[in-house]
Amino acid sequence: MSGPGHDALVVADLAVHYPARNGPPVRAVDGVSFALARNETLGLVGESGCGKSTVARAIVGLQPPTRGSVKVDGAEIVGASRAALRAARARMQMVFQDPVTSLNPRMTVGEAVGEPLLVRGIARGAALRERVAGLLTEAGLRPEDAGRYPHQFSGGQRQRIVIARALALRPALLVCDEPVSALDVSVRAQILNLLVDLQRAHGMACLFVSHDLAVVRHVCDRVAVMYLGRLAELAPRDALYAEPRHPYTRALLAAVPEPDPVVQRAKPRVPLVGEIPSPAHMPSGCRFHTRCPMTQAICRTVEPEWRQVGSSLVACHFAG
């Protein structure tokens, strides 16, 4: 099933619509496609509510999609049987945003990290303890920490525990949903360094979901920018940051406050007017037209096609 020749992850026309009690369904994800090679890190950025987490959850099979296909290491996740899904999950793991709720408060760190190995019958007893000790060390913790409970650790340390657990099965794909957003600045760097090191060491494919463009630039090879359930732009990192093609990408980049007053205050401002529309009432045509500084008549009626511009893929009539 798995083997060379496959991309680690192929997502095709993925859509997740949440039914609403009254009114039209929330089109949280509305036709997203991309692929992720082995050993590659893809960043998924966008503003809150644009559907990033939903994409992540659909990929690991925690959220059944409305339509589309997700292949992890060649195996289809959408519509897979329980057994097939369980098998596929040995190849992919997830790191969540909030390290506090990502760990069962009533389970020791050792039990949590060892659970994937135990329930899949890979190791038990002394062998399991040894594997857990190795994983903890790899994630920058001490083997003695196995006997302690999550509440005895700080946020950064808890995220290390979560990462150790995610690596237990040596996954081919690691999905990280805002892994450093809940952490303090001084701890963020530790976790980012760790993720970069581990991704390199294990040659994993990594989908890195974040709203922080500076963080994404730091860890990713390619970047996908998402707006209201769709990708606006998908480009290699350097192309995206040096030459953003989509008006939304430009606005987003301009809005990131640089921690350097000289650079930050010299930056041209690209003010985005208005608020983000609700995904239950999607604008017609280009879904960015209500806030886009470049809107033309055609944008209001015709949805832009996905086009190659330079090394970037862009969904805008006027990108160039």
Binding site: S186, L192, D212, A214, L253, D260
Partner: peptide, 18 residues
């Protein structure tokens, strides 16, 4: 300040840690 990833740093370079 050294621990912050920036839009101008070398990607994947090691960030300073506290």
């Amino acid at each position: 300040l050294a621990a912050l990833p920036r839009l101008t740093d070398v990607p994947r370079s090691r960030l300073a840690v506290i």
